[in-house]
Design a protein around this nucleic acid. Structure first.
Length: 637
RNA sequence: GCCCAUGUAGCUCAGUCGGCAGAGCACAUCCUUGGUAAGGAUGAGGUCACCGGUUCGAUCCCGGUCAUGGGCUCCA
């Protein structure tokens, strides 16, 4: 028998193996637990079918495919453990997800935290037993019969919805599950596992169907990596904007006010004001006009805009005012259109750019509310641009530049960008869709930005670009959206007088950069872990005294800083300096100035500042200190 | 909206197998005047989320409501 030479690629390195057995050994040695052959992920044992001319890639935990297989196998081990501990359980699905996996079960009683511990323990036992995952293929009908016999109604439902003739099942230590695979060779391949939480989840995500019990967990290729991941989860918890919001006294919510409605406390409000001032200033520079519009309008307006037909489930019930129905606004666009229409527009005036920090109210189901991230009343940094068709390309480019500039200023440098194209149901002509989509694409490419196309995910009224910012922990948050709209100009009969003297229809662009101020604030809190850069932070400098006799001079220093527009607070309390420094640090104040005998003697010619990280700088004269602070505020760093 | 968990002082949390409610931090007053991340003492602070039921008696047990959290679904 001829020995086949197999070329193997593992994490970028190439190896040669004589025969399948040697190849398998080599793969295992290098940490591979599955392979990619002919563009298909396969079980490691599939190596026996490898050809001499075919290169196979070994999949390790280092690749996304490898991780997914690894965690998917862990999900099966979870199901196996549940089978052993809860014989009545029926099994739904158990995929790998970002950072872990889950498995959905139908059990007579929900799992308790103690159950979770017991299940995790059992999983470790199963891993220790190290039984192989064995793949078997069978006819779909045969599988249907088998799972039917087992009473696995969810599996049979899955099988019924499948198209393939042949399906695969995996057997591991006596536990059989329907699965496409591939899997790790044996349960022992799993090195570190942790179950994280239980939650209800509808079968197939459909709220009309049964609620199942979902167990979330994660798995890593070593205990130390798992530990690192758990530490990251701790870090995320520490940065939670709801926790920091309370600790730093930024905002609150209140049962008496109502869920999803935000109270901005002084510390949060000053940050918001700073953001708003920056936003307005830059919009004026960028050629926008600022607007204000009311919080409610006649219901008819929302009928004209189409919101009452398409968006009603997110709108509050109308209220009657002198027999006429009014509606609290879920969107700003109809008002901006009304402003546009208040006078005749010439093609020379276009593009018209209207911007507003417009507060809207949307009904959100109680279960989805979440701190500042998901609320019922929020302020959009909204703008509507009315442009001629020939201006769209340039305009989109401008918006994109502007968006990235604004996001950058808040310390966001990484983005995930999505371009959503024409859905099945749409308004406007195919040509205008093509033109607009082309303009969006061209703008992205012009900027050299990487993006993903979401085919058919556009809104019915036009294509859009969505931008998700990546925060300092690498988490992606949806903020900016740029949407072309062919619909509203039509509905509201928006026109301009063309060069030829005839009425023309402008194209509208909706865009929000930060999305909502509430959510953006929440993201900022987590991004900076509450330690805001100087220009944003509520208290920029704290003046601390060593002893009572230093108060007079310390007050002079504070007054001087305050007169220069710097946000100063005084801490002249009867406490030791170590304690006051700790207080400043806990409040995350960027700079402290400490005034003692030395500083008083030198009459402010030798002040030093202590940063919140503990480092000291100086000495400075008072005016040099002021210049330094002002420069840092000005550059927004 | 649905499943599960939680709701005790401003905050973080103990606690009562049903019998006058507890700590730390924060706050107030006093002592201490101290040089770079917590000095000491004293004190004030509670309708134990809300409504109802069981009980001689409910913060505790039961039912309901509201809110919060983890998810499902949806989204800025």
């Amino acid at each position: 028998m001829e020995v086949v030479e197999i070329r193997i690629l593992i994490e970028g390195k190439t190896y040669e193996a004589a025969g399948a057995a040697e190849a398998e050994k080599l793969l295992k040695q290098r940490g591979a637990f599955a392979i990619m052959a002919g563009g298909q992920p396969r079980d490691l044992s599939f190596i026996s079918q490898a050809r001499a001319d075919g290169e196979v890639e070994g999949l390790t935990f280092g690749s996304k495919e490898g991780r997914d297989i690894y965690r998917h196998s862990t999900a099966h081990i979870l199901a196996h453990a549940v089978r052993e501990l809860f014989p009545d359980a029926r099994f739904a699905i158990g995929p790998a997800i970002e950072d872990g996996f889950y498995y959905d079960f139908d059990v007579p009683a929900p799992f308790t935290p103690e159950d979770l511990d017991a299940i995790e323990k059992r999983m470790l036992e199963i891993i220790k037993r190290d039984s192989p995952f064995v793949r078997r293929e069978m006819k779909r009908g045969e599988a249907l019969e088998m799972f039917g016999r087992m009473g696995e109604t969810y599996k049979t439902e899955l099988l019924e919805s499948m198209q393939d003739d042949t399906v695969s099942i995996y057997e591991e230590g006596g536990f059989t599950d329907l699965c496409r695979g591939p899997h790790v060779p044996s349960a022992g391949a799993i090195k570190a596992v942790k179950l994280l939480s239980v939650a209800g989840a509808y079968w197939r995500g459909d709220e009309k169907r049964k609620m199942l019990q979902r167990i979330y967990g994660t798995a890593f290729s070593s205990a130390s990596e798992l530990k690192k991941h758990l530490e990251r989860l701790e870090e995320i918890k520490k940065r939670d904007h709801r926790k920091l919001g309370r600790e730093l006294d930024l905002f609150s919510m209140n049962e008496e006010v109502g869920p999803g409605l935000i109270l901005w406390h002084p510390n949060g409000a000053i940050i918001r004001k700073t953001i708003e001032d920056f936003w307005r200033e830059e919009h004026l520079k960028a050629g926008y006009k600022l607007l204000y519009s009311p919080h409610m309008a006649r219901l008819d307006l929302w009928k004209t805009s189409g919101h009452w037909d398409f968006y009603r489930e997110n709108m509050y019930s109308p209220m009657k005012v002198e027999e006429v129905e009014y509606e609290i606004k879920p969107m700003n666009c109809p008002f901006h259109i009304a402003v546009y229409k208040s006078g005749l527009k010439s093609y020379r005036e276009l593009p018209v750019r209207y911007a507003e920090l417009g507060t809207v109210y949307r009904f959100e189901r109680s279960g989805v509310l979440h701190g500042l991230m998901r609320v019922r009343g929020f302020t959009q940094d909204d703008a509507h641009i009315f442009a001629r068709e020939d201006q769209i390309g340039e305009e989109i480019k401008n918006i994109l530049d502007f968006t990235l500039f604004i996001l950058n200023t808040f310390g966001f440098e990484d983005y995930d960008i999505y371009l959503s194209t024409r859905p099945e149901k749409y308004v406007g002509t195919e040509e205008s869709w093509e033109l607009a989509t082309g303009a969006l694409k061209a703008a992205l490419e012009h900027k050299g930005l990487k993006y993903e196309v979401d085919p058919g995910e556009g809104v019915f009224y036009g294509p859009k670009i969505d931008i998700k910012v990546k925060d300092s922990l690498g988490r992606a948050w949806q903020c900016s959206t740029i949407q072309v709209d062919f619909n509203n100009p039509e509905r509201f009969d928006v026109t301009y007088r063309g060069e030829d003297g005839r009425q023309q229809r402008p194209i509208m662009i909706h865009r929000a950069l930060m999305g909502s101020l509430e959510r953006f604030f929440g993201i900022l809190i987590e991004h900076y872990a509450g330690a805001f850069p100087l220009w944003l932070t509520p208290v920029q400098v704290e003046v601390l005294t060593i002893a009572e006799r230093h108060i007079d001079f310390a007050r002079q220093v504070a007054d001087n800083l305050r007169r220069e527009g710097i946000r100063v607070e005084e801490n002249f309390d009867n406490e030791k300096i170590g304690y006051k420094i700790r207080q400043s640090a806990v409040r995350k104040v960027p700079y402290s100035v400490i005034i003692g005998d030395k500083e008083v003697e030198e009459r402010g010619t030798a002040l030093s500042i202590r940063k919140r990280n503990g480092q000291s700088f100086g000495p400075f004269t008072l005016s040099a200190l002021i210049d330094l602070l002002k420069e840092e505020i000005k550059t927004r760093r």
